[in-house]
Simulated scan of single mutants.
Amino acid sequence: MRNVLLAVLLIISCISFIVAGHLYWQKKIDVTVRHAMTEATEFQATQKRMAYAKKLPAEVQAKIKRAIETNRPLRLVIAGSEATPAAKDGWPALLRQQLEAAYGNKVFQVVVKEYKGMTTKQAIEENIAGQLIKEKPDMVLWEPFLLNNNGVIDINDALAHIDKMIKTITAALPDVTIMLQPPNPIDNAVYYPKQVKQFQTFAKEKGYIYIDHWQAWPDYKSNELNKYVDPDTDLPTKDGQKRWADFLAGYFIAK
């Protein structure tokens, strides 16, 4: 009888061990499967967001990918004159909204630095480069005051100012990406469009990233431009702010 009891207890112990082992491994498999499914979902989400970046320069794509994978937003500083307003209805704010809608709110941290009335000469004198460095940007999208320079600063001097500021910023922040763009076009200008063309040529020759949003605006010789740029202030209207933002959104977000 005692032997039978021991045999029964042994069988029960074996069954308990087998069941416990099965439950343990089942739980471990479930955790592994869930982990794999989570990784697969995250990978798909990353791939989807990276597809939006496919038209951007390789160094910008790499920064976006790192921001997604590390959950550390890349700091995008948008800087310029009053043509780059910090107001909530300005094109930088409209662009930020579209970036967040596409990439989520943890990929770009947008900071807007508006310098009203600033010329490139004043930017050198007031050390605007130093102010931008203090923001510790990963990327700077810069509209460098050419409209305020118009009729005041010679374009060759302006380009020298711009180059000096870029070199100051990149010396302090070797990994920063500088992206240049002109201010908005203005109605029936004579010298200003030529200056913007020289600015574009300068950027190409220096190897700087240049975003040509002028192709999104009506011809500066046409009356249609007045819908988008106020002829009294030479600044974008509400429609102009949207047009500028939409063009840049198309640059940053491939469809």
Results as ranks from 00 to 15, higher is better:
residue 23 L to I: 14
residue 211 I to E: 12
residue 155 I to E: 09
residue 177 T to C: 10
residue 128 I to W: 00
residue 74 L to N: 01
residue 217 W to N: 07
residue 27 K to V: 05
residue 220 Y to L: 08
residue 33 V to A: 10
residue 42 E to K: 06
residue 175 D to C: 04
residue 12 I to A: 13
residue 226 N to E: 12
residue 18 I to S: 10
residue 213 H to R: 04
residue 127 N to K: 02
residue 198 Q to S: 12
residue 86 A to Q: 12
residue 140 V to E: 08
residue 129 A to P: 01
residue 111 V to T: 15
residue 204 K to F: 01
residue 98 Q to R: 13
residue 112 V to R: 04
residue 94 L to Q: 11
residue 104 G to K: 08
residue 108 F to P: 02
residue 94 L to F: 02
residue 250 G to P: 11
residue 27 K to L: 09
residue 85 P to E: 00
residue 124 I to K: 09
residue 168 T to G: 03
residue 28 K to A: 15
residue 14 C to G: 11
residue 112 V to T: 15
residue 117 G to T: 13
residue 116 K to M: 05
residue 200 Q to W: 02
residue 48 K to W: 06
residue 83 A to S: 14
residue 102 A to R: 11
residue 5 L to W: 11
residue 170 T to W: 09
residue 21 G to M: 10
residue 39 E to P: 00
residue 1 M to R: 13
residue 191 Y to W: 07
residue 192 Y to P: 06
residue 82 E to P: 02
residue 255 K to R: 14
residue 22 H to V: 09
residue 170 T to C: 03
residue 156 N to S: 13
residue 105 N to F: 02
residue 66 R to T: 14
residue 19 V to Y: 00
residue 15 I to R: 11
residue 18 I to V: 15
residue 107 V to N: 00
residue 75 R to M: 02
residue 22 H to Q: 10
residue 210 Y to N: 10
residue 76 L to T: 10
residue 69 E to F: 06
residue 131 Q to D: 13
residue 122 Q to I: 00
residue 117 G to M: 11
residue 146 L to N: 07
residue 246 D to R: 04
residue 128 I to V: 15
residue 128 I to Q: 09
residue 140 V to Y: 00
residue 178 I to P: 08
residue 199 F to M: 10
residue 13 S to I: 14
residue 119 T to A: 06
residue 116 K to C: 03
residue 239 D to K: 01
residue 33 V to I: 15
residue 172 A to P: 10
residue 164 K to E: 14
residue 146 L to G: 04
residue 230 D to S: 12
residue 61 Q to V: 00
residue 135 E to N: 10
residue 84 T to A: 12
residue 29 I to R: 15
residue 250 G to Y: 03
residue 4 V to M: 11
residue 50 M to N: 08
residue 36 A to E: 10
residue 51 A to D: 13
residue 145 F to N: 07
residue 206 K to R: 15
residue 228 Y to R: 08
residue 54 K to V: 05
residue 75 R to A: 00
residue 196 V to Y: 01
residue 165 M to I: 07
residue 225 L to Q: 09
residue 73 P to N: 14
residue 186 I to V: 15
residue 206 K to A: 13
residue 210 Y to V: 06
residue 132 L to R: 04
residue 205 E to L: 12
residue 14 C to Q: 10
